[in-house]
Design a protein around this nucleic acid. Structure first.
Lengths: 199, 199, 199, 199
DNA sequence: TATGAATGAGTGTTCATTCAT
DNA sequence: CATGAATGAACACTCATTCAT
């Protein structure tokens, strides 16, 4: 039941927005009464927190897996990271949109935890970029902080325009994005042709 | 008075969100009564539309000016475009954030106009990129559509983290972004060192 | 101007009701501002009072003329009264409907005057009936009070269904009504066939 | 509770009018909060519709019973119909007045149903008159449509002046009205003395 | 587990009216 | 004569939340 509530809530929050979705809407969608809702969730905001945690924990977990894989180089890690984000937008688009749009409705007690995890995600990317620089895969003068922001911007923004069943797949968009990024952040003099390794 | 209402509304909408800001909040901030608000605006949403139009019309106008300037090359236009967007986030950050976050609260009658103008902005960037490709400044195999989305993502996303009085100025961030972008989209074989022309 | 305000107000009050018509509606219809309205009328209710007075004074005046005409018998007076009422519904239908429906919105200070005039109208009918009884035209056992109410009911109610351009004219409906009434209230033994005198 | 809300609403709507009665008035009368009201009724107008349906369904049901009774003649049916209407004004005067006065506040979606039922009531009376004509109880040249309107006007209008505890009872008024009507619509030559059957 | 009745504070909006200009 | 800015009280309605059952 808790799963079902979370599921329809994500759909409704995405379609109508958090503030515009009432507990009644959620209950109507499930054919239960409001008492039931409050049996499973302490408040509307607690439900929102749940949704946020699910999403960020999931992508953080994937990210850690990518970063700790010693068998791939940093260019590949970069691709995998971007690809994973786009994939999550394709596969759990509603969750992603709720995550990006409704964070602000979390209370002051709960928000910091989400922000911390979100920062963790960004810091992990910075770390990846810095290690890539140290390994000679990325340009030595790279401002990794700004570069990380740029990468996240390109990728996260796609939830505003990317349609799962559009002209290009998530993988194709990821490849184009990474090509754009790499030609700039790759160390000059390194092999400029994109290797086929992560295609 | 209309200006004053718009002004405080932007501040409040940014801080608390559109749905979370009541007409009463706005009126209290100004020391007027709700009747006064409704003398100047037909509805809360009409006010939001006003804010949106002001913002998008302003940046569209700047963009047109940049694009139609025949004295600068496309790399420079690119820099100017990115710089202008970041500048607008620095100088009218609240408006920008309201624009990006609250668009969804526009009614179905009003939303299409804003979306059309927003698309116009993106299409203008695509056009600029395409002409840069034709002129040999940008890579011939550039997917201008995706590139435009990427550029907009990098830039627009900055409203989430960019602080006007932070470590780097808008101009510096713009330079870093454009460098990142250019090394990828510049025609291979062209002068890879960034010209000083737009510094 | 005062005439124009009264005119459009009658139309609007009839179409939308008094409570549902705002001063703004009235002003919009005339292309003037609310200040103008309050220059000519002390309040919305004062306007309503004006409309009521115009209507009731007009029909009272006609009634007095009918009743004081010594050249016609009481059956004819009866017909003329009914006919006049139906005529007023045909010709000033909007005023009539406003009169019947919106009286309740008059204030406690103003209402008694209208009620007094309205009662006067009914009492005049009672008087006419009583004199007709005394003259032997109407049945001796007639309850003139109830009969007057019945007559007024039949006639006034027609504002709910009578359409000026319908199958029957006001005159034809009046004839049918008076025939219905007369066959009952005429003195038994009097000539039962309707005389052509008031056709 | 729904009954209680309906009950006090009828009283308030009658005394002050629909538009002039606020939900707060209703709630104050019952010592409950507005939330409670909206738990039972979707809107103020839905409550009004409820009141209308109760009233018209009740009198329609009584009418059908009168019309389908094969043991009484049409003159008696006529008396019973008029008597029942006056009775309903005596016993449920408030409902009756709300019904006649506030119908206009029903929405365009709901109004047609009430109008249809109201027309049904009138058509039933026309049918009764027509059958009475065919049976030779009423005059052959009777315009049943106009006669029905006249009958309804006489009777319905009484809600404007009839007071339950006045000089005459509903039954007495009904007898006077029916006598007035019958002497006109009875077939000439039929027994002119009113039978005692419905006295 | 789940219901359904009730709360109470809050929302956007309307509107008759006033008044300085 | 007429305007236009401003008021302030009221209104219908919503909604997250509680709680006895």
């Amino acid at each position: 039941m808790k799963e079902k509530i979370t599921g329809v809530s994500i759909q409704l929050f995405e379609k109508q927005g958090f503030s515009e979705t009432s507990i009644q809407d959620i209950c109507d969608s499930l054919g239960v009464t409001k008492g039931t809702f409050y049996y499973y969730f302490k408040s509307k905001e607690a439900l929102l927190m749940d949704i946020h945690l699910r999403y960020i924990d999931d992508i953080l977990e994937h990210q850690e897996r990518i970063l700790s894989d010693v068998n791939v180089n940093y260019r590949t890690k970069l691709f995998q990271t971007v690809n994973r984000l786009l994939q999550s937008i394709e596969q759990q688009g509603a969750s992603a949109r709720v995550f990006f749009r409704e964070m602000r409705h979390l209370s002051e007690e709960r928000l910091p935890l989400i922000i911390a995890k979100r920062n963790q995600f960004r810091v992990n990317i910075e770390t990846m970029l810095r290690q890539g620089v140290d390994d000679g895969e990325f340009r030595g003068d790279l401002n990794v902080r700004i570069a990380a922001f740029g990468l996240l911007g390109m990728t996260n923004w796609s939830y505003q325009w990317f349609h799962p069943h559009g002209e290009l797949s998530d993988r194709e968009v990821a490849q184009i994005f990474v090509e754009m990024l790499l030609r700039g952040i790759e160390h000059v003099g390194a092999d400029q042709t994109l290797g086929g390794d992560f295609r």
